[in-house]
Amino acid sequence: MTASTELVTPTGVLLGTFTPGSPEWEEARGGLCITATEIAAVLGLSPWQSRFSLWHKKAGFATPPFELSREMKWGIRFEDDIAEEFAERHPEHPLLETGTWQHRDRPWQRATPDRLWGPGLVEIKYSPLGEGWGPDGSDEFPVHYRCQVLWQQDTLGLLEPASLAVLIGGWDYREYTVEYDPEDAELMRKAAREFLDDVTAGNRPPIDGADATYQTIRVQPDGREDRDVEIPFGTVCRWDAAYEAHQAASAELTAVRGEVLDLIGNGYRAVCEGRRIAYRTVNPDGTTLALQPYRRKDAA
């Protein structure tokens, strides 16, 4: 079933169904609104966007063009297959395709859940390596996806537990439950409203270390003038120190990664006194594909 005006949710108003990357899709996500995929950036938790890059987008300044990554491309291709697996495992309700919604009382709050299912919703993901995803059924999954699903629940008023269905590496299917938390939802709404107020007032966020911030700054100039620009001495000191530290850290990281990988051997995880440090992903022949670090909060 495709999205239609027949779909009704407690607090959601259906705007339509749009192809990712299309002008209609961009329009539904643009302007002074916060979507479910943007709320993590507002909170400083997104791996793809920063507050700085999102602020520029909402303020109408130049931003890097949308590019469909390989992970996103395969995620779109696998979406129907993952949905089919979820439907087979949970036949008690039909799994409905849907579109972009806004909250009936807060039109700046928008969301595009992948599927509606009974009293809740289902968000579908694809992860090539499974980084950040814990065992099937656990509460270990990337925090930015929790933000996304919680925002979807809050927008549509579907407050029953939601499901995250993920396919890892093309064959490992897992499911996770996302509980609605009214206090967290309130904090997210407050942060989103303050962020949009900053956009209106022209209060640009500070430059941070996110790649999305750097890429946004790169597209701001629209030409080049043959002139020198004097920059602060303090910035120059940071520049010199950062480049020297980067060179030293890069060599040390390569060395310690090799040492950890050598110690793991044919094992799966490197641990120390109960703390998980890193884990191996492997090729079909058992050789190492990558050595992935555990984030400190996931390492216990």
Rank of each mutant, 00 (worst) to 15 (best):
C33Q: 05
I34T: 08
I34A: 07
T35S: 15
E38Y: 14
E38Q: 15
I39V: 13
I39M: 09
I39N: 05
A40L: 10
A41W: 12
L43Y: 06
L45A: 15
L45M: 13
S46F: 10
W48A: 13
W48S: 12
Q49L: 09
S50P: 05
S50D: 05
F52R: 07
S53R: 07
H56S: 08
A59M: 01
A59R: 06
A59I: 00
G60P: 01
G60F: 02
G60M: 02
F61M: 02
A62L: 08
A62E: 09
T63Y: 01
P64F: 01
P64M: 02
P65S: 02
P65W: 02
E67D: 08
E67R: 13
S69D: 04
R70L: 09
R70W: 08
E71L: 03
M72I: 04
K73C: 01
W74R: 03
I76Y: 15
I76C: 00
F78R: 12
E79W: 02
A83E: 12
A83F: 11
A83T: 12
A83Y: 11
E84I: 04
E84A: 15
E84N: 09
A87Q: 14
A87E: 10
E88F: 14
E88K: 15
R89S: 14
H90N: 15
E92D: 15
E92P: 15
H93I: 00
P94Y: 03
L96V: 06
T98Y: 07
G99E: 05
T100A: 07
W101F: 09
W101I: 05
Q102D: 00
Q102S: 06
Q102L: 07
R104C: 10
R104T: 06
R106W: 10
P107E: 15
R110N: 13
R110C: 13
A111T: 01
T112Y: 01
P113N: 03
R115M: 00
R115P: 00
L116S: 00
W117E: 02
P119R: 04
P119N: 05
P119I: 01
G120H: 04
G120P: 00
L121D: 07
L121I: 09
E123A: 05
E123M: 00
I124A: 04
I124E: 03
S127D: 14
S127C: 13
S127L: 14
P128I: 06
P128V: 03
P128Q: 05
L129H: 13
G130V: 10
E131M: 11
E131N: 11
E131Q: 14
G132Q: 10
G132V: 04
G134Q: 04
P135R: 09
P135D: 11
D136L: 03
D136N: 12
G137Y: 09
S138R: 05
D139I: 06
D139G: 11
D139S: 14
E140Y: 04
E140L: 12
F141A: 13
F141M: 10
F141S: 09
H144P: 09
Y145N: 11
R146N: 06
Q148C: 05
V149R: 03
L150T: 04
L150G: 02
L150K: 00
W151G: 12
W151S: 15
Q152N: 09
Q153D: 02
D154S: 09
D154I: 04
D154G: 06
L156T: 11
L156M: 12
L156C: 09
L159R: 03
L159I: 01
A162P: 01
S163C: 06
S163F: 03
L164W: 00
A165K: 09
L167N: 06
G169F: 08
D172K: 11
Y173V: 10
Y173P: 01
T177L: 14
